[in-house]
C-alpha cells in the first residue's frame, strides 16, 4: 500500500443554519492507501455523508482539505465516482442510457462508439443487469436499480469509488449477493473504495479498514480498525472465524459503549457544542443501528 493516495487533513465542516453555524465535522484526519477498501461507520447524523461529499467534491470543507494523488480536491469529477444512497438514476433514461450518459461523458474522446457500447454492456454484465438494459428505472426493483447505480459508477473507471449506504434499502438476500459481487469487482479492478454503512457485519466482511466516527456535532475519527482477514472472504466461513468475531465485537463495543447513541453519549467539549440537537433532524427511518443493539 502506497502512502496517502487520498488524504484528509484537519477537515472542518460548518453548515450555515438559521441559528448560526453548525459544526458537523471538526479536525478530521484520514489517510487512505491505493486500492484500500475503507468503511465509514457511525451513528446516524454524525457526518458520514458529509465526509463522503467532501471527498467527492460536492461539498467544500470550511477548514482543512482533501488531497487525491497530490492534487487538492475542490470540484466533483468522474475519477471520484459516487454511488448515491438512493441509486439516483435518471428516471427518463433506460438502464443502458443511464450508464451511457456517464460513459459518453468520460470516454467521449478516448473510446470509439463501438468500444463505448461494449464497455457499457460489460459493466452491466458485472452487476448482472445486462438483461434489463432497455428497461426504465421505474420498471425494475430497488436492488436492480442500485446495481445499475454501481455499474454507472464503475463504468467511469474511477480511481476512488465512493458509496453512501449502497445496500441500505435492500433485503438481506439481495444485499448479500451484491456484497459478494462488490468484493469480486473490487479485487479485480483494485479501486480505492470508501463505503458508508450502518451494518457492522457488512463493514467487517468487506473492508480492509473500518473508520469509526464519533458522534456529532464536531465529529471526527474515533477509532481506526484494520481488518486483517484473508481474501477472498466467504461469509459463511466468516461466521465462526474468531478473528472476524473479534473485529465485529470491537466495532459493536465502539458504537454501543464508547459512542452511545446521541443524547446518552458523553461528548467531548468542542467548538460545535453549543448547537441545539434539533438540527440533527434526519434520524427517522434510520433506526438500523438501534435495531441491532
Amino acid at each position: 500500500m502506497s502512502k496517502s493516495h487520498l488524504e484528509l487533513t484537519g477537515v472542518q465542516m460548518a453548515f450555515d443554519t438559521p441559528s448560526g453555524p453548525f459544526i458537523a465535522l471538526d479536525n478530521l484526519n484520514l489517510k487512505i492507501g491505493k486500492g484500500e477498501f475503507v468503511s465509514l461507520i457511525g451513528h446516524s447524523g454524525c457526518g458520514k455523508s458529509t465526509v463522503l461529499n467532501i471527498v467527492a467534491g460536492l461539498l467544500g470543507a470550511t477548514r482543512g482539505g482533501c488531497v487525491l494523488d497530490g492534487h487538492e480536491v475542490n470540484t466533483p469529477g468522474p475519477e471520484r465516482a459516487v454511488v448515491f444512497q438512493n441509486h439516483s438514476l435518471m428516471p427518463w433514461l433506460t438502464v443502458y442510457e443511464n450508464v451511457e450518459l456517464a460513459v459518453q461523458q468520460v470516454f467521449r474522446k478516448s473510446m470509439s462508439k463501438r468500444e463505448r457500447k461494449a464497455w457499457i454492456l460489460h459493466n452491466l454484465e458485472l452487476v448482472h443487469m445486462d438483461h434489463a438494459a432497455n428497461k426504465r428505472p421505474g420498471e425494475i426493483s430497488g436492488g436492480m436499480a442500485q446495481r445499475v447505480g454501481i455499474a454507472r459508477a464503475l463504468a467511469m473507471k474511477p480511481s476512488v469509488l465512493l458509496m453512501d449506504e449502497p445496500f441500505g434499502a435492500l433485503d438481506a438476500l439481495t444485499r448479500a449477493h451484491l456484497q459478494d459481487s462488490l468484493m469480486e469487482i473490487q479485487q479485480e479492478l483494485n479501486n480505492t473504495v470508501i463505503m458508508i454503512t450502518h451494518d457492522v457485519d457488512e463493514a467487517v466482511l468487506l473492508s480492509d479498514r473500518i473508520i469509526m466516527m464519533t458522534n456529532g456535532p464536531a465529529a471526527t475519527v474515533g477509532e481506526d480498525l484494520a481488518i486483517d482477514l484473508p481474501r477472498p472472504r466467504n461469509r459463511v466461513a466468516m461466521a465462526d472465524n474468531p478473528r472476524y468475531l473479534r473485529y465485529r465485537q470491537a466495532v459493536l463495543s465502539f458504537l454501543y459503549e464508547k459512542q452511545r447513541f446521541p443524547d446518552k453519549a458523553e461528548r467531548k467539549p468542542s467548538a460545535g457544542q453549543k448547537q441545539d440537537s434539533g438540527s440533527e433532524g434526519e434520524d427517522e427511518g434510520r433506526q438500523g443501528l438501534r435495531a441491532i443493539a
Binding site: 467527492a56 467534491g57 470540484t75 466533483p76 468522474p78 459516487v82 439516483s88 450518459l101 461523458q105 468520460v106
Partner: peptide, 11 residues
C-alpha cells in the same frame, strides 16, 4: 441527487 450526478460527471 440527479444534480449531483450531473456535477460528478462534469456535464
Amino acid at each position: 441527487d440527479l444534480v449531483n450526478v450531473s456535477r460528478v460527471l462534469r456535464l
